[in-house]
Amino acid sequence: MNKTVNHKAWFLVLPVLILVAFSAVIPLMTVVNYSVQDTFGNNQFFWAGLEWFEELLNSDRMWGALGRQLAFSAIILAIQIPLGVFIALNMPKGGFWASFCLVVMSLPLLIPWNVVGTIWQIFGRVDIGLLGHTLDWMGVSYNYTQNPVAAWITVIVMDVWHWTSLVALLAYAGLQSIPQAYYQAAKIDQASRFSVFWYIELPKMSGVLMIAILLRFMDSFMIYTEPFVVTGGGPGSTTTFLSIDLVKMALGQFDLGQAAAYSLMYFLVILLISWVFYTVMTNLDKRDGV
């Protein structure tokens, strides 16, 4: 609906425009600038064209990181979304225990990323960590610094521990908004527990779940701190995800041009996948049976 036209209103938006320009557009342009040039320090730049992009697209390194990244995000979503929904379904609907659960569930969300990493780094150590030591004592061969499978499991479990609460809280909010009449109607219709979930709870939760999936995807696709602290991307490069790889390239090898090209492609991939997610989901939401 278009409101009364008032040109003064644009001035109110101006500070935000300036802020966005400084915080997003200008840095982005800098990156674009770097990505098409080469430098050997001394502030000397040479035009490189699309060379960096070409090189990256032909390198196994980036494709490897991208593959690992996709696998990681897929696993994370596959575990966290159903688990979060399951937890939400089983939380008390009200009273003291509901508040208690909410507080307990929020705790992991309040812990900074690097602290989470450190916690798990120590927790999983065979020599002093409770988890690592116990597993070792039970005869399970577990060493996330040497065994790629152990490293992956550690990183995934850590992320699940850190973020499932978010999904659960969102799903819980979605569930709370379902009017009591629906449950009453389902009882009267003698619907099974599964039917209640499938025909009432899931459709009514679909909106918040969409947001949860989008948030968790974007977040997990950009994961850096926790695996960096725990595994440093190893053993080898088995847990080197895109952002870790990017930092290695930019700060470890100081390949600024290539790293700039890398980050642009990274950005485009996120944009693309998020857009696909968003379109698919909004269409799902709008679809009307004919």
Partner: peptide, 29 residues
Amino acid sequence: ATTQRNIAQVFQFPVVYDTMTVRNNLAFP
């Protein structure tokens, strides 16, 4: 319990199963 009373109820606001067809909505009970 409600389930054992063998009643039907119509509420103030329409309670329908959105993802079902109209037919299945009617047939559900």
